[in-house]
């Protein structure tokens, strides 16, 4: 267990390369201090994010998942984030069915210039997950195929 015992929880972020990953970089360049729990997976577009990734994370042991993309209308690939929004909204509604507190998953929009906004997002989400505490572990994470079927 390499998550620093008790200090940190396991939070995974999926960030689009063009806006939010850039925003997180801008926050770094500006030295906007943030909690250390979050680990970022870089994807080209929020539209690339398969709800399966989020389910797999939450069922696999993550205590929280944060998705962030470009602001609506600002997508580097024209419309990827519209699809993302629809999918992620559906997923959020579906989480309770699996016994997952929907507050463990949030999605938001942060542009490459919004370093300070990114800091606030990370602070708020980390606090929210710490408020919920560690997620109830799944003794055995379901296989990919099963999840795939669930995710569609």
């Amino acid at each position: 267990m390499s998550v620093l015992n008790t200090k940190e929880l396991r939070i995974i972020g999926f960030l689009c390369n063009w806006c939010s990953y850039g925003g997180a970089d801008t926050a770094g360049v500006g030295r906007f201090t943030q909690p250390t729990d979050l680990r970022v997976v870089r994807v080209p577009c929020s539209g690339r994010i398969n709800p399966l990734f989020i389910l797999k994370s939450l069922l696999g042991g993550a205590d929280g998942v944060l998705v962030s993309g470009c602001h609506p209308r600002d997508c580097h690939y024209a419309e990827g984030n519209f699809y993302a929004r629809r999918r992620l909204e559906l997923l959020k509604g579906f989480l309770p069915v699996l016994g997952i507190d929907p507050r463990r998953f949030e999605y938001t929009w942060v542009s490459a210039s919004e370093g300070q906004r990114w800091q606030h997002v990370v602070e708020a989400f980390t606090a929210q997950i710490h408020g919920l505490g560690p997620a109830r572990g799944w003794p055995e994470a379901p296989e990919l195929e099963i999840l795939n079927a669930v995710a569609r």
Partner: peptide, 12 residues
């Protein structure tokens, strides 16, 4: 590839 990254975090 993306799931490998997720797994690298969740397994440990």
């Amino acid at each position: 590839q993306i799931l490998a990254e997720v797994e690298a975090l969740c397994r440990f």
